[in-house]
Simulated scan of single mutants.
Amino acid sequence: MLNLLWLQSGGCGGCSMSLLNAESPDLLSLFENAGINLLWHPSLSEASGHECIEMLEGILAGDIALDILCIEGAMMTGPMGTGKFHIMGGTGKPMIEWVQALAEKAIHTVAVGSCAAYGGITAAGSNDTDATGLQYDGEMRGGLLGKDFVSGSGQQVVNIAGCPTHPDWVTETLMSIALGEHQDDNLDKFGRPRMYADHLVHHGCSRNEFYEYKASAVDMGDRGCMMENMGCKGTQAHADCNTRPWNGQGSCTNGG
């Protein structure tokens, strides 16, 4: 069995909410079939308080193996690098210190969502909390763990980028790790799994015929390609949203 620990930091929890919609298999069936033991998740686990803290301390002491560390949400390093904008409840210790220590123990480290990967929405604007990703700060390597960080497997952080992530992107990545098939070669230049990041949202878009004939939508709700006037980034955004629809049928472009 592979032990998986899931922690949340600066974010909305949307990636976890999306993950609960996983189908074929559902999340719990995936864990069972892949031989993954969920040590703890803030929304899915019964343990709390001292039970959770004891489990984390057991990992750091080497008493509990940590095979996969999943982080959701940005790392809030402020103010002035102390990380005290986010103290893990009941510990008096900043979340960034817990994550740094646990990442040193993990065989694989996974950033779930754009916030954990690059800072995301949490780091947008004036970034008052000094939020950053695990191994990237925006497009630049670095982040909390540093550009040269590797997990116990000798591999870099896996950035399952998305806001939120498609549940299949997470489950397929976890399955790849569980089967021993994951390698850094499976990731693109920003650390994203190529199985979805080698695609563009543009691929499979239901409005592609409008795109080909330069028939552009002008106002909200218009038929037509939304790139020219409506700001659609489908030709630049790396994801397979239109060839792997959300909930079997939805995508941003299908929704207009």
Results as ranks from 00 to 15, higher is better:
G10C: 14
G13C: 01
G14F: 09
M17S: 12
A22E: 13
A22Q: 11
S24L: 13
D26S: 08
L27A: 02
S29M: 01
L30K: 06
F31M: 09
I36N: 04
I36V: 11
L39C: 05
P42F: 06
L44R: 06
E46Y: 12
L56A: 08
I59T: 08
G90P: 01
T91N: 00
M95V: 14
M95W: 03
Q100F: 07
L102F: 08
A103T: 08
A111M: 02
A111L: 03
C115V: 00
A116M: 00
A124S: 15
A124P: 06
D130M: 02
Q135F: 00
Y136W: 09
D137W: 03
R141M: 14
G143R: 03
S153M: 04
Q155C: 14
Q155A: 10
V158F: 08
I160L: 11
C163Q: 07
P167G: 14
D168Y: 09
W169M: 07
T173A: 03
M175F: 07
S176Y: 03
H182R: 15
F190I: 11
G191N: 04
G191A: 05
R192D: 03
M195K: 05
V201T: 14
H203Q: 14
E212Q: 07
E212A: 11
S216N: 15
M230Y: 05
G234A: 07
T243Y: 05
N247M: 15
Q249E: 13
T253R: 11
T253G: 10
G256P: 02
